[in-house]
């Protein structure tokens, strides 16, 4: 980040009192809306001591929710990673008709309510869905089962990697790849040896955001999961169930794990932005 050009220009800066008031206002606002919820999560989780906290986390249902969340992310993130790389290769390295339409369509899941993201799959594969009877006859269950949870998660995390890679690869242009091809490299060699090293940090950045959303998704997953304890409950859903049962310590204990994940994501994101700012598109978009 360049040095602030305004700090040493009394002619155009604000007075010290205004500065102080604005900084105070910003900090107060962020403290109320960002810091306080985090403090609330951890203090409620530990309200009855470390023992109760740990007991809630080692509960079989909690463990199974953690396992399912990890499994779902392990399927959804790689799928969207492959899609993100393919989409950004097609969009950033070639010029074709209808590109902006394709870009708008890739963004579509961002503007769809999470609840609708789940509903669309219920209407397709649920018992009353268009393929429901056929699936039932063939003994396949998608809705109220793990495949539905994976599908809904893939839907909501769909644009993350692509949205990060497309502007980055557009910025980098095609000269490097063209040189490699002209020198006789195959397409795969070009991608692996020329493109990939250029986009790796942006790729990691996209995967990070995609993963955070995949593990934390609530609305879409809640519609398709059926909330079967020990089977189709992800961590965010388990938080809801425990909370609605007034089991606050356990709810906040599981929530604190998710909050920890969010904090780790933010730290890694910030580290990437500071260290590799020029190799990440999102940082200075």
């Amino acid at each position: 980040m360049p040095a602030d050009p305004h700090s040493r220009r009394p002619a155009v800066g604000e007075g010290p009192l205004t500065r102080l008031a604005l900084i105070g206002l910003a900090i107060l606002f962020l403290a109320a809306f960002l810091a306080l919820p985090l403090v609330a999560v951890f203090s409620q989780a530990l309200a009855k001591g470390v023992g109760a906290f740990l007991k809630s986390l080692t509960d079989p249902d909690a463990l199974s929710a953690i396992r399912l969340t990890l499994t779902v992310a392990a399927i959804a993130v790689p799928l969207n990673l492959v899609f993100g790389v393919a989409a950004s290769w097609a969009i950033a390295k070639f010029n074709f008709r209808g590109k902006s339409l394709l870009l708008a369509l890739i963004d579509l899941p961002f503007s769809v309510s999470p609840v609708i993201s789940g509903l669309v799959y219920v209407l397709l594969f649920g018992l009353h869905g268009s393929f429901g009877p056929w699936l039932r006859d063939h003994g396949v269950q998608i809705i109220f089962a793990v495949p539905g949870v994976v599908m809904a998660t893939v839907f909501v995390t769909f644009p993350f990697v692509a949205r990060e890679l497309i502007p980055l690869m557009q910025e980098q242009g095609v000269e490097d790849e063209e040189a490699a091809i002209v020198l006789g490299a195959s397409g795969w060699q070009t991608f692996r040896l020329v493109t990939l090293p250029n986009i790796r940090w942006g790729l990691l950045y996209g995967v990070l955001l995609c993963n955070a959303r995949a593990m934390g998704e609530f609305g879409a997953v809640s519609v398709v999961s059926g909330h079967i304890r020990g089977k189709t409950n992800t961590m965010p859903l388990h938080v809801e169930i425990l909370y609605n049962e007034y089991n606050f310590v356990a709810a906040f204990a599981v929530a604190s794990l998710l909050a920890l994940l969010a904090l780790v994501t933010l730290a890694a994101k910030a580290a990437l932005e500071w260290r590799f700012a020029d190799q990440i598109a999102a940082a200075k978009r």
Partner: peptide, 17 residues
């Protein structure tokens, strides 16, 4: 860095907090 917390924090966690 903290400004992005609402992007990273699962919505159900934000809700109960």
């Amino acid at each position: 860095a903290m400004v992005d917390l609402p992007f990273a924090l699962p919505t159900s966690v934000a809700g109960i907090a």
